[in-house]
Amino acid sequence: MGTRGPDSAGLAVFRRPLDAPDRRFGLYSNDPGVDWQAVREDFQRDTGGEATIRFKETHSVLTSSIDVDDFKRWLMLSHPNLHILAVGRSIEMYKDEGLPGDIAQRYGFDQLMGTHAVAHTRMATESAVSPAHAHPYTAGEDFCLVHNGSLSNPYSVRRKLERRGIEFETDNDTEAGCRFLEWRMREGETLEQAIETSFTELDGFFTFLMATADRLVLVRDAFACKPAVVAETDDYVAISSEFRSLAHLPGVATARVFEPVPEQIYSWTV
């Protein structure tokens, strides 16, 4: 699907969850020469906690039992140039600038294993092309979202959230949508209720595909200006902007292929 979005790409895979209290902290460095082992050693020295780290170029996954807020505080003091890509017991995420095929190869997407995954290829329209602006976006723990479309009120959504202490990493409209939904879930709504709330709060066009530790959720705005197609078999569900990226999946010839209708929330549980 590189032709739909050739400027950046990303993938979040949901792996078998770690046992509590362990979590995976996905980290990103703007410096390609970053010494990830040194980051791990700093973490162990500064916090007194154990950690393991796996890394590939600018991305790493640090696994530790540390509390999330304590980790963020440590990162801010010790390595303020590193960014958190994703946090959770299941999620692992890679995203970067460049051709989607190259990114998939560089980060070894074909080697990743998990129960479900969400990927995106981006053609930027309203904010910069940078690794941070690539999708998926994450907020909270084990939640990510990819977006086709554009929101027309991201700044008012953002101001509303910032007043509540929610911090943003980019000026991107999708991040506003992602953080809005995660905020509603933290306020006690289910993801479905949060999406219902978003119908009145988020203005603009969207096909959102979201994942939590155990679910995939899909929704299109009332006008359904942005495409989506779903293929369901007894073995899997696959969702894409276009059928041509599903055409070579095993068993797709007999799959139930359908187009999601506007404002209907589709959900699949692992």
Binding site: F243, R244, L246, A247, H248
Partner: peptide
Amino acid sequence: EILNPDGLH
């Protein structure tokens, strides 16, 4: 007959 259209445009 056109075979293997596979969602092509």
